[in-house]
């Protein structure tokens, strides 16, 4: 898709008759989960045909989410894929923790800042230059800023990732050289398309998202910029269905795939355990 067309779509987003939504599909908002809530999600990433594999490829991730406090939530995750093997096999385990340290709430709008830490232990072999914690061992830390206005939610994040694969600490010279460090950035916009007027909490909600995901490795200076549109359905205010697509707009690093489809389902459970009274 030409870049001008994309920019035109994004420019029209605030003009759509919609309201802001920040439950992004490809990235995290600065908001955290409600305290004492649990959640679980399963997401499938499908590459119908990729020239690198000369076949279709899939990745499945599962996450167990815990709202530990009003400002702190964690996710424990696992990834399985056939991107490294012919069968679907375990790829990695991960921990993701997010702390919301600033909230400026006004009626129907807010500005929030959060810091996050992501760590992963991967079983997959070290392929490609893309610094991705779904298939590589490492840690990532970053900040997220989310601005919720009446019409559109805008969110941006910046993070640094350090891969801790054992090959980083040995004397072997790899060709091509391996990238162990990267800066990643995201920019997301989202809005509620339906219903136009909220009547009750059981109405089906339809949200549309446009996201940009980018990365630059720090030693080799390879990069990518992806565009990731998405559609989300929320049923009875508790079940989320995500449909997304991600495609590389520009880039020069080797990656497992330059595009993928995303299908996800997420369920949340509120007030799972009792809190302390004041």
């Amino acid at each position: 898709m030409p870049l001008q067309k994309l920019l035109l779509i994004i420019a029209t987003l605030p003009g759509l008759p919609c309201f802001s939504q920040e439950l992004f599909i490809h990235s995290e908002p600065a908001s955290t989960m409600p305290a004492r809530s649990l959640g679980a999600n399963v997401t499938g990433y499908i590459i119908p045909y990729d020239p690198v594999f000369a076949r279709s490829a899939q990745r499945y991730t599962g996450q167990f989410m815990i709202g530990l406090g009003k400002r702190f939530s964690v996710k424990l995750g696992a990834a399985f894929s056939n991107m490294h093997t012919s069968n679907v096999e375990k790829e990695s385990f991960s921990f993701f923790g997010k702390y919301r340290f600033l909230s400026k709430d006004e009626l129907h709008k807010h500005f929030r800042l959060a810091a996050f830490l992501h760590a992963a232990y991967a079983y997959a072999p070290f392929h490609s230059e893309e610094v991705d914690l779904r298939d590589k061992t490492g840690v990532s830390a970053g900040v997220i800023a989310t601005r919720l206005l009446n019409k559109v939610a805008l969110s941006g994040s910046a993070s640094i990732t350090q891969l801790l694969d054992s090959s980083r600490f040995n004397e072997t010279a790899y060709t091509p050289p391996r990238s162990y460090q990267a800066m990643s950035y995201s920019f997301s916009a989202g809005c509620l398309l339906f219903p136009q007027v909220y009547r009750d909490l059981n109405q089906l909600n339809v949200n549309v998202y446009m996201e940009f995901l980018a990365q630059q490795t720090l030693t080799e200076h390879k990069y990518y910029v992806d565009f990731a549109p998405g559609l989300q359905f929320i049923i009875k205010s508790s079940l989320k269905l995500n449909l997304g697509y991600r495609i590389e707009l520009s880039g020069d690093m080797s990656r497992l795939s330059r595009y993928e489809w995303l299908f996800g389902i997420e369920k949340n459970f509120l007030n799972v355990w009792k809190g302390k009274s004041r």
């Binding site: 809530s37 919720l148 007027v197 909220y198 909600n205 929320i234 205010s237 509120l270």
Partner: peptide
């Protein structure tokens, strides 16, 4: 304040309902 999603409204409603002295919570989502 700061609320624009139905998931968020539901979270607020459910948390309020857990308070011992609260009998019932109704939401005007609009």
């Amino acid at each position: 304040s700061g609320v624009t999603c139905s998931l968020c409204s539901k979270a607020i409603q459910k948390t309020l309902e857990k308070i011992p002295f609260v009998r019932q919570v109704t939401v005007d989502v609009k």
